[in-house]
Design a protein around this nucleic acid. Structure first.
Lengths: 168, 168
DNA sequence: TATTGTTATACTCTATAACTATA
DNA sequence: TATAGTTATAGAGTATAACAATA
């Protein structure tokens, strides 16, 4: 059980943390909002999936996911094919064009982080990732989510879809 | 220099981290948005200050601060008195009513965190706070310019344009 | 001329609710 | 009846730009 001061400090850090996200969100390519970028990244990382699955990974309502996906589909960056097993569902898939956008996106964010985290050691970054992952699990789990994931496991970068990953 | 995989994983964590903030933002008292709550917390923590100072602590544009502050002032939770030393400035001060709201706010957020972080040790929480603080510093500090920097990039013209979603 | 703060405007993200089409 | 997904609407956060008052 932590001290109250610690909790209040954590609240403060969380409250002010948006600045990091905002900064990172500025590098998205034209016509690709940070929200859409997150969709591309998840599709590149986990491969094809359904709306509901994506929605869960994004931890937002499906209506939100739907809009981001529609935006990307309009630009030809992802594909929505009907699920033969359930005609209500649609399978989302990154297109080659979407893969290119994702690659550029990835390049830019890695470049930004490499510059910002110049002074960080691998171990420190690893610790931060681990703790953030765990915090998300502590929050996202016990509530709205009808689905539990084995939490403290930053999913290893899974296989990318064909033309997706930045080769660099 | 960290591995690219680490950077990409960190991007993923940052992208998904909003869920924690959203969850925490749900506990604010009536008429007090998360943004306004942050203002109350900073005034309670640092004492009286000017708009510009508050704006810097919040790490948002002063126009944003101005709106939050106006909201709180309308409710009598903070006070805006003219600065005798500089008539352009206004000194912000928490009122007793504002202090009460802040106390309730604090109570609720601490309660929420205590529940969510049931399994965390003091040390782990301390580490998370330390790393988040450092990450914020790495981002917010090096450059006060929240603007696009065309810095060390005289690179091969990528297939995508710079982000210009919110042009002049 | 530069700075402090306010206001108007616009854009993104989000959830809720109503709706459709399947199951 | 319940579920997958879409759309409309509303609320919060933010930045930019134009403006007022003062330095």
């Amino acid at each position: 059980m932590a001290a109250q001061t610690q909790y209040e400090e954590l609240v403060r850090q969380l409250s002010a943390f948006s600045v990091v996200k905002r900064d990172l969100g500025r590098i998205t390519p034209a016509d690709c909002s940070p929200g859409s970028a997150a969709v591309l990244a998840l599709l590149g990382r986990h491969g094809d999936m359904r709306m509901s699955n994506l929605s869960e990974l994004l931890a937002v309502d499906m209506s939100v996911t739907s809009r981001h996906v529609a935006h990307l589909a309009e630009r030809g960056w992802i594909d929505r094919s009907p699920d033969p097993a359930d005609k209500r569902s649609r399978i989302l898939r990154l297109t080659p064009e979407g893969g290119a956008v994702l690659a550029e996106l990835s390049r830019r964010s890695v470049a930004l982080l490499a510059e910002r985290l110049r002074d960080w050691s691998d171990d420190e970054i690893g610790q931060l990732i681990r703790l953030m992952t765990r915090l998300r699990a502590s929050f996202g789990d016990g509530r709205t989510t009808p689905h539990r994931q084995p939490p403290p496991q930053p999913p290893p970068p899974p296989p990318l879809h064909e033309t997706t990953r930045t080769p660099a």
